[in-house]
Design a protein around this nucleic acid. Structure first.
Lengths: 231, 231
DNA sequence: CTGATGTCGATTGTCGACAATCTGAAAATA
DNA sequence: TATTTTCAGATTGTCGACAATCGACATCAG
């Protein structure tokens, strides 16, 4: 309730970016936004400034801030960083994670299998939007739980930030099919089993593998999306 | 020359943090700083806000921003992240780095050996401040060159940020002796040789090893420094 | 017709001021 | 004396306004 107006503006603008309401290279005018939100320019400026240092928008002096349009190379960079961080996190989790949370990981894997089975029953082995969303949410939960299990708060925060960026930038209308879901389930299962037997190396290795596959999948989708575009 | 006042203020305050002119839990008053810099509060506020989102200072609403005093656990977290990122970077560098830059790495190693030899000749095998500084600068150059060789700009930026934090926070008056310098030289040499023969795994492994040793060294120093303090 | 130059509008960067809030100490009461 | 209340000072959060600067358009020379 005692939120400062800056935080308020920050959350709203960030949410809009997430929803895809701003297109790449759009200019975020603090004047317009302040009028729209019914507050002064100062808080809006500070909020936008924060988004700028977080890398979601780019600031051109004396011109304005623009929604970033990252290249495929930058997307690849983001995934490389996630691979480094999350694979190390998996290794750390194999050492430190509490038994209770490990079981929780197992339950998430079981849920994934259920969802994949539901997909197999559907026509053409294509997942519905709802099914895809549920699977993605499960995926996210798995990774977050594992990150928390690694016991490194700042690493958790970093990965969340990067994951946010890949979601904003790589606005691919993902439509999972059975093959993808089954493979994803297998990867998570392998990581889970490695953690269960406290195998640090295996957990780290398979997490890296998993993220690399996801990277190739998303980058491929982006290439098809932008392949027939300009440049 | 067309720097905005915000950027100007940001660089100055950041530099002061680096120099250790502010002590942990000090409050950064934008009012005082603006008067001191002879500019208005707005640019100073935005500069401080940026430092806040970067994590160098912490913002308490309606109270002020304070210089962070990270716990030993947080320092350890920073090193864990560096280990994850830089070891992956070393592996990537082994794959992608240009031949010319690899030779440059070798030169830096040679310089380290020279400095270590100079240290051996000094009395008690203790390094002078100048010698220590030169060695540290060399160390930094090595890591930066390797990061650039990995070809991931954002990763480079991230590591620089974290390295800055470890330098600010772990304000240990490092006084290298021969043992430390020799070991550090050996580590860098091992990484260099792995990259030279394009051995991805070895480069990654030894870089992780190197950072873990540095972590233990710094954390030990911090424990001694704060061991006889409060709580 | 093409390119350079000047002008106008719009937007940002910066400023000083005001109100809301917190901190700390002094005063008052039990 | 200890505890609570009050109050004053200082600091932050927010605001509206002004000036510097940039981009676009029109004008004009070649």
């Amino acid at each position: 309730m005692t939120l400062t107006l800056k935080q308020h503006a920050y959350q709203i603008i960030r949410q809009r970016l997430l929803n895809g309401e701003f297109h790449p290279d759009d200019r975020l005018s603090d004047d317009a936004l302040s009028k729209e939100l019914g507050i002064s320019r100062s808080p809006v400026r500070e909020a936008i400034s924060q988004l700028s240092t977080e890398g979601l928008v780019v600031h051109k002096p004396r011109s304005g801030v623009y929604v970033r349009q990252p290249s495929l190379e930058e997307m690849q960079e983001l995934y490389e960083i996630r691979e480094a961080l999350e694979s190390k996190a998996a290794g750390m989790a194999a050492e430190r994670m509490r038994e209770h949370d490990v079981k929780e990981l197992g339950k998430l894997c079981a849920k994934m299998r259920t969802l994949a089975a539901r997909c197999r029953q559907s026509k053409g082995h294509k997942a519905t939007k709802s099914l895809t969303d549920q699977f993605l949410a499960n995926d996210l939960d798995f990774h977050l739980l594992l990150l928390r299990g690694a016991g490194n708060k700042r690493m958790l925060q970093l990965v969340q930030e990067f994951k946010l960026m890949t979601r904003i930038f790589g606005h691919v209308p993902v439509q999972h099919d059975l093959g993808i879901m089954a493979r994803s389930y297998r990867h998570h299962m392998t990581v889970y089993k490695a953690i269960e037997r406290r195998d640090k190396q295996a957990a780290s290795y398979w997490m890296a593998q998993h993220i690399r596959v996801a990277q190739q999948y998303v980058l491929e989708g982006l290439r098809q999306q932008t392949g027939n575009s300009d440049n």
